[in-house]
Design a binder for these strands. Structure first.
Lengths: 207, 207
DNA sequence: GTCTATAGTAAGATAGAC
DNA sequence: GTCTATCTTACTATAGAC
């Protein structure tokens, strides 16, 4: 699997050849932005480099996006969608297979989430690296808000400070797993890390 | 307890009146910087505001510090020192009281760490909020590197990807606890949060 | 939609007198 | 050590032709 989150998204769009010019151009720009952000980090990246890499012009980039922050956020959106969908689907599948224990359903989602991280290490490093546009809050507050909200209800947690803490710790745990996965190479090591992360998640969720 | 981490540090300096002018000025500047960073966040804060707040001049500020990032890092240093010392002392105390179980020693440090967070909510929000100078990596990579290294050996962990993951998750957990504490008011709620965080830490460390 | 050229601007940092 | 005035730089973002 190449590191293209876009590829995973493509299925939801029309066949490539029928894309309007606008969609193609946006894609080219986003790909360029992704590469530049990965190489230089958000803070150091500048529009000029993205323009250069895309082979287009400043004007064109600004025609399609509102600027650097907008580009970053658009990429984040794609990134997050893939994770969230994988997790959501896995939970639904598990449910249909007869799993009904909330913790096990949650684990199914977590495992799917972490599996996605296998193929997305450079992007993980980018989006979990801690820089981004102003207002792009680091870490868990941004981990699939939707996904986590679902899981909170899934786990039958109420909205108290204590259960909020628990949920945040679960999120951090998954994110740390994601980071760890991004930093090793061998598939078998990744398997071990996923298992470890899952077992920690299970022990927290079971408290 | 007022929100002055500096106060906790003062003991390590000479009596106030004997400070050289340089030390006094540095203190004034740091206090101003702290307030401005807390109010505006790192990214939005600018040297002009800090200068204004300090009642000094641009030149003077630059005479004492290398700029905005340097100021932030100096504040971070004070912040971190207080936490680390509290935790280190607590571990030593526990040990002298006859505690020898590594996990319980670790918990003693964690509890002390979280207790410090009670009085430092605005600073917590600042330093755990996710912005900072380039290179100020978010989250756990910066939680008392020293403290955590000690605790890693304390817990008898080796240097494998899996135990690194475990340590990082422990760090994140403590940091999430810190954040949670910073976001509630009542002391009794804080107690509950500390207990919850500790019990999660314990369950992870015991795995 | 795409391009080039350029305007705008904000802030970090320095020079050099006192 | 401290001050004021100023510079510089690096980008982002827009204007307006094609």
């Amino acid at each position: 699997m190449t590191e293209s989150i876009a590829a995973a998204n493509a299925a939801t769009d029309k066949p490539a050849r029928q894309w309007g010019r606008t969609q193609q151009t946006r894609r080219v720009i986003l790909d360029a932005a992704r590469d530049v952000f990965i190489e230089e980090g958000y803070a150091d990246a500048n529009i000029a480099h993205i323009v250069e890499r895309s082979g287009l012009s400043v004007g064109s980039v600004y025609h399609h996006f509102n600027g650097k922050a907008d580009l970053f956020l658009a990429l984040w959106d794609e990134f997050e969608t893939v994770y969230t969908e994988a997790a959501t689907t896995a939970v639904a599948d598990a449910r249909h297979s007869g799993v009904s224990d909330p913790i096990e359903l949650f684990i199914a989602g977590t495992r799917a989430y972490l599996e996605v991280a296998r193929g997305a290490s450079r992007l993980t490093l980018l989006f979990r690296g801690g820089d981004g546009p102003p207002g792009y809050d680091t870490l868990g507050r941004r981990v699939g808000a939707e996904w986590m909200k679902n899981n909170t209800t899934l786990l039958g947690l109420e909205d108290t400070p204590v259960s909020r803490l628990k949920v945040r710790i679960l999120i951090s745990t998954v994110v740390e797993g994601e980071r760890a996965i991004a930093s090793v190479e061998s598939p078998s090591e990744i398997d071990t890390l996923i298992d470890e992360a899952i077992s920690i998640v299970r022990s927290i969720a079971s408290l």
